[in-house]
Design a protein around this nucleic acid. Structure first.
Length: 940
RNA sequence: GGGCGGUUAGCUCAGCUGGUUAGAGCACCUGGUUUACACCCAGGGGGUCGGGAGUUCGAAUCUCUCACCGCCCACCA
């Protein structure tokens, strides 16, 4: 006997363990002979992570697809795993060291630190898997992978070495986005532009040798033409970053700018520093902006870097890696320094942090009366997405991937339709980015990650190889003597000391961007570069389910790597789901602290309720703002279904072996059988087209409204009556429909349905396999439903009587008689069949017929039949009049509207025949109804 | 500066390829101790579908435009 309410908290862990023990999630488990594979690779969560709403949504949707396909008999693999998440993980462990007041990363050394991260992973890395397990994610946990495990690391090596050999990975010295907090380069994607209120400082740079020019100082209000000039011996430049002026190596003006044309080729003397720097003509300078002259700092600005290249300017780096001024011993900086009586003031700034340096420089300029103006200015400033500090463009050697080359086939695959995005508008986003893709900086100055397989030798020699031995072999061949590996300092020292017996190499200390290994995920997890059976069977994958926030980070890169190394696009479909945002619509993130914990909702309402909520809200192209009330609503739904099963149990509705839904005799049975099939078809189609909300909605409303509210209620008189063939049939039908609902609902609510599936069988004394492991997705042709007319009429009749009763204030508990006027043979038959149900559901005590409506009765018009409630003294006649009047108004309105259409000649001519015909029929119905209602009103 | 998405009931949202009486959940009002379910049942109120223009016989749905809101991308000193 089932309990009165469903206890998710007790059932869910038990069921989860049963699945686990049964090995039901294993790849291919339960697949039909010769079944087509269906593969999803999980977007690997960070090992540091815990389950947030985004994960809950993401994995719910994947699980819906996976369970659905498994039930259809496909050979399903849902590949799970986690990502080593370079910076994030290193941060977490470093923070832990600090909290525990243990030696920091540098003092413990690289090897010990990496060891420490591994042991941290062993202890704490499993959180998210457990949480996914609680959510009911049916991944093949036996195949769980980690981006830094041996197999995946081998794949990384293979890819790096191959891309390097093909010239698609190279080392380059250029400006990178440098994170001065984590002391590493990061990629463009890891930079967030943040709006900052700052200033634009206008500085005067004196022109060398007393040259002058005429600068406009007043303009005509209408024409904008200058009306007044002054003679200047300085150029005004504006900057948001005064501290970088120490590294200025030019001032640029537009070549066509009449104000400055005569100055191009001359020099200014850089204030404070005394350096002579040229005035260059370059299109980059915009005459419309500021003074039209711009200071150029090639080592600290991406634009200036390009200008510097064009004009062969010196690049003076004036910052150290922690973004402090680096002046002492800075040869490039000191090289051009001129005579300046106060130069010591500048040198005193050595070692000062950049923002303090900014204030100091401004003060020095002001003291020298070279500060022309301070203008408040709002602008976008690059920040590290993890560190949150301002990113510094910094000149370093890094490794790059030639992304533009790899992007070409990746775009082509989407263009050809080998891979389809759902919803399709994301393809635009994908193309937009791919078409403008920049070289991908893949080296990181971190310790946790895949160390770059490159070894350096003397004379700029670089050996990229899968193993140290291979690198050494290549080196000794190149240098003609044995090679050995040493530490960096040692190796460099040996090169400076000159040739010895052997040549020393040192290994690149950097590691790869985390996304480099993630990019290989769809095939590295299947064993690549080995030719494993799994790779052959499950690759390319069927669907990737992910959020749009990582299309660039991940999806695009998997496409590139997948095509480059397997010559196939890694997925057929990329389903992009919404982001679950906080109540303000902001992206949830740990750093913002606005994360809602799905585990709390699971504790409160159960995983099934949470899953169903997420699926029901996963309409394409819209973000989800989750409300706990909604989850509660769907928790109620679990109870509703539970109680329907309880009712079935109490009424002897047991599954019947070999039950044939097509063989049923009762109208009610025929109706619900067809409705069930219709629902199954709707759910199937919706899942196939990734309309999760429609799928959830269809099964929800069928279960609650069609099945519980009508079918069960209508069947009660029979089920609770004496034994009869009809009763036995309805018992079997009820059990069958319930089973079908349980199956249809299983992808969304796996725990509840699995429990019901087992309990139903148990009560009936039947042996059954786990629902999860069953190839049993409901699929039936939707037969023509002749029974629908009858049941719809019946539903209509009962609804109308109920409505009238309420509106004319008949006490809810008091049974009333009804009198039918104008009933035909068909209606008589229907009434006879469903008499008991009508009496019960509409609270009717007696049904009779008459030729004319009894006096003082309320009336319901059902087609040709008037259903009269003769209730002299009971009925509130005024209320009935008002009710009828209201109905009359509504009908009149409808008729008027239809007449408007039908009297419009162009409607009749141009609208499709069936639409016109439908309007005519509708008008006729409304009119005949109007006549009857009017008559009823007249009689009162 | 480009691009995308949103604006539908008090709240959170559906409404796919134009024809519905514009729906759901929650909230609200009225009435219910009918032995599956009060995490329930029955009935009900509530929307000029952001504003404007257009296309069409017909627009919440297509086009344009304006207004707000959100997001993504971008090197403007």
């Amino acid at each position: 006997m089932l309990d009165k309410t469903y206890d998710a908290a007790a059932v869910e862990p038990r069921i989860a363990n049963q699945w686990e023990e049964a090995g039901a999630f294993r790849a291919g488990a339960g697949a039909k002979e010769g079944a087509a594979p269906f593969t999803i690779v999980i977007p690997p969560p960070n090992v540091t992570g815990s389950l947030h709403m985004g994960h809950a949504l993401n994995n719910t949707l994947q699980d819906v697809l996976v369970r659905f396909e498994r039930m259809r008999g496909r050979d399903v693999l849902w590949q799970p795993g986690t990502d080593h998440a370079g910076i994030a993980t290193q941060m977490v462990v470093e923070r832990q060291l600090a909290e525990r007041q243990e030696p920091d990363r540098r003092s413990m050394g690289r090897e010990a630190f990496v060891e420490r991260v591994w042991s941290w992973k062993a202890e704490s890395g499993g959180t998210i898997q457990n949480q996914l397990f609680r959510l009911g994610a049916s991944c093949d946990w036996s195949r769980e992978r980690f981006t830094m495990d041996d197999g995946l690391s081998a794949a990384v090596l293979e890819v790096f070495v191959k891309l390097h050999a093909d010239g698609l990975i190279y080392r380059d010295k250029r400006l990178v986005n440098w994170d001065p907090r984590f002391l590493t380069a990061i990629s463009d994607l890891e930079v967030q532009q943040v709006e900052v209120k700052g200033n634009l400082w206008h500085f005067r740079y004196p022109i060398e040798g007393g040259a002058t020019y005429e600068a406009p100082i007043a303009w005509d209000e209408e024409t904008g033409e200058p009306t007044e000039y002054e003679t200047r011996d300085y150029i005004v430049v504006a900057t948001t970053r005064p501290e970088t002026m120490l590294g200025d190596t030019a001032v640029a003006v537009h070549p066509d700018d009449p104000r400055y044309q005569g100055l191009i080729g001359k020099h200014v003397v850089l204030p404070l520093v005394g350096r002579r720097i040229p005035i260059v003509g370059d299109d980059y300078a915009d005459p419309e902006t500021g003074s039209g002259a711009v200071k150029i700092t090639p080592a600290h600005d991406f634009n200036d870097f390009e200008v510097g290249r064009r004009h062969d300017l010196a690049m003076i780096n004036i910052l150290d890696e922690e973004a402090r001024l680096s002046l002492d011993g800075n040869e490039a900086f000191l090289a051009g320094v001129g005579d300046d009586a106060n130069f010591a003031d500048v040198m005193a700034l050595h070692g000062i942090e950049r923002f303090k340096a900014r204030d100091a420089i401004v003060a020095l300029m002001e003291a020298r009366e070279l500060l022309a103006e301070i203008e408040p200015h709002v602008h976008m400033v690059p920040h590290g997405d993890r560190s949150g500090v301002v990113i510094e463009p910094f000149l370093t050697d890094q490794w790059y991937v030639d992304a533009a080359t790899l992007a070409k086939p990746a775009m082509e695959a989407v263009r050809k339709g080998d891979t389809t995005f759902v919803p399709g508008n994301w393809e635009r986003v994908y193309f937009e980015w791919m078409e403008n893709i920049q070289p991908w900086c893949i080296s990181r100055q971190l310790w946790w990650g895949h160390q770059i397989p490159a070894w350096y030798g003397p004379d700029g020699a670089v050996f990229v190889a899968k193993t140290e031995d291979e690198a050494l072999a290549a080196a000794s061949e190149r240098f003609g003597r044995p090679a050995s590996v040493a530490g960096k300092a040692e190796a460099v020292a040996s090169w400076e000391a000159g040739a010895g017996d052997s040549v020393a190499l040192y290994r690149d200390e950097d590691v790869l961007d985390t996304w480099f290994s993630s990019a290989l995920w769809p095939f590295s997890t299947l064993g690549w570069p080995e030719k494993t059976p799994e790779l052959a069977r499950y690759y390319p994958t069927s669907v990737l389910v992910t959020g749009f926030d990582i299309i660039f980070f991940w999806v695009a890169r998997m496409m590139m790597m997948g095509l480059q190394f397997t010559e196939q696009a890694p997925f057929h479909t990329v389903y992009i789901h919404a982001l679950v945002r906080d109540e303000k619509g902001a992206k949830m993130s740990k750093s913002k602290g606005n994360v809602i914990d799905p585990i709390e909702l699971i504790d409160q309402f159960g995983a099934d309720a949470l899953r169903f909520t997420l699926a029901a809200m996963a309409a394409q192209g819209r973000d989800i703002k989750l409300s706990p009330a909604r989850v509660q609503g769907y928790r109620n739904f679990t109870t509703k279904l539970w109680n329907a099963a309880r009712f079935a149990e109490m009424n002897g509705c047991k599954p019947v072996a070999d039950f044939d839904p097509d063989g049923v005799q009762e109208t009610l049975s025929k109706w619900i059988v067809v409705e069930t099939a219709r629902t199954a078809a709707a759910v199937t189609e919706a899942i196939e087209t990734y309309r999760f909300n429609d799928a959830a909605g269809a099964v929800y409303s069928f279960t609650w409204h069609s099945f519980c509210d009508w079918y069960l209620e209508l069947s009660k008189p029979v089920l609770q009556g004496d034994d009869s063939p009809a009763r036995r049939e309805l018992q079997a039908v009820t059990a069958w429909v319930l089973d079908e609902i349980v199956k249809l609902l299983h992808p969304f609510m796996p725990f509840l349905t699995e429990e019901l599936w087992a309990r139903t069988a148990e009560e009936a004394g039947i042996q059954r396999r786990k629902l999860l492991a069953l190839t049993a997705w409901p699929q039936r042709a939707v037969a023509d439903n002749a029974a629908a007319r009858e049941i719809n009429w019946l539903v209509d009749l009962i609804s109308q009587i109920r409505s009238v009763r309420a509106e004319v204030n008949v006490p809810a508990g008091s049974p009333i008689p009804i009198v039918l006027v104008g009933a035909g043979a068909q209606e008589r038959g229907w009434i006879a069949t469903h008499k008991a149900a009508i009496k019960r559901l509409a609270r009717v005590e007696q049904i009779s017929e008459a030729d004319a409506p009894p006096p003082q009765s309320a009336q319901v018009i059902l087609g040709d039949v008037a259903v009269c409630l003769p209730l002299a003294g009971v009925v509130d006649l005024d209320a009935e009049r008002a009710r009828l009047k209201k109905e009359l108004d509504r009908l009149a309105g409808e008729i008027k509207k239809i007449d408007g259409k039908l009297s419009n000649p162009s409607f009749v001519e141009r609208a499709p025949e069936e639409v016109v015909e439908e309007q005519r029929e509708r008008r006729e119905e409304a009119e005949s109804r109007r006549v009857k209602v009017e008559a009823a009103l007249g009689r009162l």
